[in-house]
Design a protein around this nucleic acid. Structure first.
Lengths: 324, 324
DNA sequence: AGTCGTTACGATGCCCGTAAGGATA
DNA sequence: TATCCTTACGGGCATCGTAACGACT
């Protein structure tokens, strides 16, 4: 059994069982992968992939178990490299962060500015994507950190650390009839066409929950995955916008009015997560700390010593998180 | 980085930094190992071993971390092989058990008899050794299971499952003046020279505890690591023997009298343990079950889902263990 | 003086890449 | 018909084993 063989089977799965595109992705030849995969299967005496003629159609149940462990192994190989790098050049390396639009556009910029100034030798990459894409990226080991506000069930294998609470703002154009309103209820809100996030993005489910709890059905006129598109359609008068408060830019959004929400929506939580097997470089601890100042190295390590995300949530109930 | 390189550094550590004996153990040449170790160090850019001239004297702190992860990786490689074997020939494989004399001599025989009859294709190996040797064997990955009654602090990295409670018996030759005594107290016992286990073997610390709690100092005339030697010296009249009750053979020990201990010693627990990363073959689950019938496959899996051995102990407080 | 790790060198064998073949959608 | 995996073949390179060297106990 060779490490390359494990890499190959994992990457073949990552490339949806397409060996050719896998080969392209690994800058190697397609027959080489094909052969190594078969050699591994021969050595183990089990099929990993089910072939229909000359196409790989699916992964056997045995194969799935093997793939899972192979991922662990490759991740630990990376850990060894990280340990070595940490001792030779502690400030040099790379950091991949997967997150959603709102974080990438409104929250991360000033943190990243500071980070790259402090660690000029660390190459930092932001993968922006849907919660599902983020979950895939991190479980495949393509990225170190996931920052998420939604669909935490996708991240169950990860260590998820709460970073801050946040809530929504209701936005309307300055000329809108609600623009001067001081108090707004959820019932009133439900009378207007709404423009907000697509399902599964940036706290959409808590939004639905609030309407459902109040027993009213909102009229969703339009949804988008990011706040800038929502703002654009609000500006066009398509409806009342509901976006994350941190997505309001006080300088650029002068033509929009932010109404007080009076806590009609419950708080959402933004969390940062990583695989438990990840070896955390010191600059990674620092990144976490810069993103959420209460997440000290010791606190992160303590969370790592806990088994489940439930225990972690309990632990963080004792710590007051900032509200954005 | 190659798997062989990881195997080499781990085995070099296992062989007390002696590359020559490592080479012999791996049936390969000594320069080959030497070179691969150096190549790995060059690739990682860190020293793993500290050399004084041409001798390896110790492992660097970085090296220790790397060794630990390398062991994990190699263990997972074995898991993959096990998964494959489980699907091709579920009843074929090997099982290594490390344990102390008392288990190997008095408890395991009838279990093993049954096991090898049920799984003739599984090659079963018993490593008998001191608690320290057992702990080394399992942490090095030489054995699958450790069965232990003592010094559980040595096994902290393992999943330890309680199997049964047991206690000691006091034995004297039939002609001894205590032979007809019905009730014996710990104070009386302390007046006689005692023959019992060496420190660190088969529940010696609970024994000391009992004397210490009673405020008396026992006179230990002789200690040995196994019950048969203790019996021999009891037969010679060297003193009163205190051994594990299961080490009394009703047929062979007719010349010895077993006195009622009246609960003057507290119960000890025998546990079976394995590394959490071990992939458990179905015959391994079955072995555990045969050793401790309450340890069903589901219960073992549930214990595996718990984080710490403390949680496991709590879990087993709800389950009544047999007493031997 | 003996044990032990490093260096040098030659051969085997494995892995990779190109090219051709056959099956599926 | 186009895509895709498999088989076949040849070149390059890494690994391994033998042998000689140098260092420490």
């Amino acid at each position: 059994m060779k490490l390359q063989q494990l890499r190959y089977i994992v990457e073949v799965v990552n490339h949806n069982l397409n060996v050719s595109s896998t080969a392209a992705g690994l800058y190697t030849s397609q027959p080489g992968i094909s052969k190594q995969v078969r050699m591994l299967e021969d050595e183990l005496g089990v099929q990993i992939f089910i072939r229909s003629g000359k196409h790989l159609t699916s992964v056997t149940s045995t194969g799935k178990e093997i793939i899972r462990i192979a991922r662990d192994i490759l991740s630990k190989i990376e850990s060894i490299k990280s340990i070595a790098a940490e001792h030779t050049c502690p400030d040099k390396g790379s950091l991949y962060v997967a997150t959603t639009y709102t974080q990438a556009r409104y929250v991360l910029p000033h943190i990243i500015t500071h980070f790259i100034k402090k660690y000029p030798q660390v190459s930092l990459h932001i993968h922006q994507g849907s919660p599902k894409q983020i979950a895939d990226s991190i479980s495949r080991g393509n990225v170190n950190f996931a920052i998420a506000t939604e669909a935490f069930h996708l991240y169950e294998d990860l260590l998820m650390l709460p970073c801050y609470y946040w809530n929504r703002s209701i936005i309307v154009p300055t000329k809108h009839e609600l623009a001067t309103k001081k108090n707004i209820t959820i019932e009133e809100l439900s009378k207007y066409p709404l423009v907000t996030y697509t399902f599964g993005f940036t706290g959409k489910s808590e939004l639905d929950q609030a309407f459902s709890n109040a027993g009213v059905t909102p009229h969703i006129a339009f949804t988008a995955t990011d706040a800038d598109i929502i703002k654009t359609y609000v500006r066009l008068g398509l409806g009342v916008g509901i976006i994350a408060s941190m997505a309001i830019d006080k300088k650029l959004d002068l033509d929009l009015v932010q109404l007080p929400t009076n806590n009609i929506f419950s708080n959402s939580t933004t969390k940062i997560g990583f695989r438990r097997t990840t070896f955390l470089r010191s600059y990674m601890y620092d990144f976490i700390r810069q993103f959420a100042s209460h997440l000290t190295r010791d606190l992160v390590n303590h969370a790592l010593s806990l088994r489940s995300n439930k225990e972690i949530d309990v632990m963080f109930q004792k710590i007051s998180l900032p509200i954005k």
